[in-house]
Write a protein that binds this DNA or RNA. Structure first.
Lengths: 217, 217
DNA sequence: ATTATTATTTAGGTTACCCTAAAAATAAAT
DNA sequence: ATTTATTTTTAGGGTAACCTAAATAATAAT
């Protein structure tokens, strides 16, 4: 498996390809490549048994594809823990580093690293590390865009894209913070939040809020 | 720079390309690829300024190429220290792991890792880690095949190829051991050693002995 | 000084992964 | 129910990194 193919599987998983069909365009956007390249790659992933592809509809991961993606994500998150906890990296800087390392990590290395880190449950962005907990976390957790208005929730995970992390940090939002959705305006693409600690009102784009996950308390 | 190109630079350095012209065949053998591929790659490395190539003669690293190779080797050795000292890898198992990791290691990561490891001087195979010490070590150190008969020496470095390490372990030779060359027979390709600790006589192939470096005491 | 051997290069081909432009299919809007 | 807009695919191309087979250059051996 090439790092390139691994990236496709991981993105597919992150876009919900375990349970739903992911359209090519979303993958193209996320990886910053052209749509024809995605079509081509999907056919190759189908041939290798990682993906089920319905032309003009989108792709779903097979069982094997899902497992593979989860293992990659586990490696990614283990490295993030190491980089932050032991090497003193800033939490916003670890994503690109882990993105590279994950492709160069054998199962044996991941296992030894995990033991060395004392079996951490979550990565610095709140993502579950054990492949079994990944699905569990998915069930308990909901996109901020779907959280009920007025209900207090806790920020449990932030999709670890460099620029997104910066965006949320700029708006004083981080893992563990308690917030309450005050208003959601679809036409203006705006969500207004009440921050539990600072007691301030925060406004963020609804589109971007998709990358923020919260847990009901 | 692709991992592939990085591998060529590193091999070139290891084969003495800093000071001498390395013929294509040696590179082809070491990387297990065909000679035409080496020719092609050398032209590409020349164009990028890493290598000076004399057709039918061989390749030398430019100053930039040497620096690049040294940095890669530093990363490789830092990972080896981490894998052995912290993750508990067997010394003979770390080479392939480090081989992958080195290509996914930013300078920032290498620097932080080095500090975390408390600035080790040598990798588990005895190779110097600081890019400045690499040349120094080269000067003080001589191939076992060139050590004077009867002179006591200390094994200072073993080229870290998986199979070679196994070979030397099978013959009870490891970093730090004191040995004395008793006899060298070019026609039989045999070197006879006296082991300082076990007081035993050891015979190894002269061809393979090239990958063993010793330091005069 | 030829001849034989070995090393290197040229020529031509393959696969992986990327692209743009144009055609076709699907979805949305009137 | 058409038209319009969007998404996807097909067609045709490019580069990187590999290959084999054949030609050429360099080296070694007679």
């Amino acid at each position: 498996m090439s790092p390139t193919k691994e990236d496709y599987l991981k993105i597919l998983f992150e876009l919900g390809g375990r349970t739903e069909q992911v359209p090519n365009k979303e993958i193209a956007n996320r990886l910053s490549i052209s749509p024809p390249t995605v079509t081509e790659m999907m056919n190759s992933l189908v041939k290798a048994g990682w993906v089920v592809y319905t032309p003009y509809k989108g792709s779903k991961l097979t069982h094997e594809g899902t497992d593979y993606a989860k293992k990659l994500i586990r490696k990614h998150r283990l490295w993030e823990v190491f980089l932050v906890k032991h090497l003193g990296f800033n939490i916003n800087a670890v994503h690109p580093e882990a993105e590279l390392l994950e492709h160069s990590t054998s199962t044996e290395l991941a296992d030894k690293l995990e033991a060395y880190l004392d079996f951490p449950e979550y990565c610095p962005h709140g993502g579950a590390i054990s492949v079994d907990m990944m699905e569990e976390q998915e069930v308990k957790t909901v996109h901020l865009t779907e959280a009920a208005v007025g209900e207090p929730v806790r920020i449990s995970r932030i999709v670890d894209e460099d620029k997104l992390l910066q965006y949320f940090e700029n708006h004083d939002l981080k893992i563990g913070d308690r917030v309450k959705v005050m208003d959601r305006d679809a036409s203006l693409d705006l969500i207004t939040l009440h921050h539990g600690t600072t007691e301030k009102e925060i406004q963020i784009s609804q589109t971007i809020a998709q990358y923020l996950f919260v847990e009901y308390l």
